[in-house]
């Protein structure tokens, strides 16, 4: 990580990391010093991350180096084959999807992709889907259903793209139809929030038989900035809005909105992609094992019970 990749509250870690980086890897004398510094780094990291404010949590969920859907797909699955297009109008790069293997069995993978470089972020609209992206997701879910493949979704978006074209192409219908379809899809649907989950653009692939959140992700009805604008009539109260919306996994687990929190490596997912993917893989495998064994009718009965009680 470069110095500019550290968030303000992570600053105390820079100095220790720098001293650690300066140690000569070939110097046998440095061994003791190295383990001492590593221990110090570990302690500092734990100290900072065990006492995060809600807003710091939001910043982590949006961290520039945080693993995105594409990184997760590369690290968790094998043989990913991307599929494109909604077959009606276009292909929206804010949503990626395709077939892959998990534990040797084929699955359908769908997620928001924010993009990493400035160019990529532009092409992908910062992960904010147009109706075409959500319709591509729906097409892939139907494809998965036809071939009895479980659907694994990854949520990472501030919301649906707020543009005029999306309105003309009926963003409302795209979101609503996905929700109705997910409710009756005859295969398991497992949703994981990996970064930011905001509004209908997130929910349109962000619900199912199981909903889990990574430790430093967030999920809310709107971004804190949007909530601030709507409720406070000013964009200046995003921090207060974030606190009021109870958007962190701990609070949402307590409210019964989510089923599980997927832990992240020390210091957050952006510090250890491999470790993050290993944790995600084991949690996805675990849930999938349980849902796969369930007869379709039972799966649908359970889902009906689940959807009927949403938000109670």
């Amino acid at each position: 990580m470069n110095v500019h990749d550290y968030l303000d509250f992570e600053q105390p870690l820079i100095e220790v990391q720098k001293r650690l980086d300066e140690l000569d890897a070939d110097d046998p004398q440095a061994g003791a010093q190295r383990s001492e510094l590593e221990q110090q780094l570990n302690q500092e990291t734990q100290k900072i991350f065990s006492d995060l404010s809600i807003w710091q949590h939001v910043l982590l969920a949006r961290h520039g180096l945080r693993p995105h859907t594409i990184d997760v797909i590369g690290g968790v699955f094998t043989g990913f084959t991307e599929l494109h297009g909604d077959r009606r109008f276009g292909d929206d790069a804010a949503i990626v999807g395709g077939l892959a293997h998990l534990d040797g069995a084929p699955v359908m993978v769908i997620g928001h992709e924010k993009g990493r470089t400035p160019e990529e972020r532009g092409e992908r609209n910062f992960g904010m889907p147009q109706p075409e992206g959500l319709r591509k997701a729906l097409r892939l879910m139907r494809l998965a259903e036809r071939f009895s493949l479980p659907v694994l979704t990854f949520v990472d978006t501030p919301g649906a793209y707020p543009g005029a074209e999306g309105e003309v192409h009926n963003q409302n219908e795209a979101i609503a139809s996905n929700l109705a379809a997910i409710y009756r899809l005859r295969v398991p649907v497992i949703a994981t929030v990996i970064g930011e989950g905001g509004s209908g653009g997130a929910l349109a692939i962000g619900c199912g038989d199981w909903l889990q959140m990574m430790q430093f992700s967030v999920y809310s009805v709107a971004t804190p900035e949007a909530c601030s604008s709507i409720v406070w009539r000013s964009p200046d109260h995003a921090e207060a809005a974030a606190e009021a919306m109870k958007l962190v996994p701990d609070a949402l687990l307590e409210l019964g909105v989510i089923d599980r929190i997927v832990p992240e490596p020390s210091g957050g997912a952006h510090r250890d992609l491999e470790g993050t993917c290993a944790l995600l893989r084991s949690h996805l495998s675990d849930v999938l094992k349980r849902l796969r064994g369930m007869p379709v009718e039972q799966l649908l009965r359970e889902r009906t019970r689940r959807f009927r009680a949403l938000g109670d």
Partner: peptide, 25 residues
């Protein structure tokens, strides 16, 4: 959606879409 209920409000979209789906069926 009602901001003051955040996620509890957002998921009503799925719940009501499901209600309509049952009528369709």
């Amino acid at each position: 959606a009602r901001m003051q209920e955040s996620m509890l409000s957002l998921v009503q979209m799925a719940r009501t879409a499901a209600s309509v789906e049952r009528l369709n069926e």
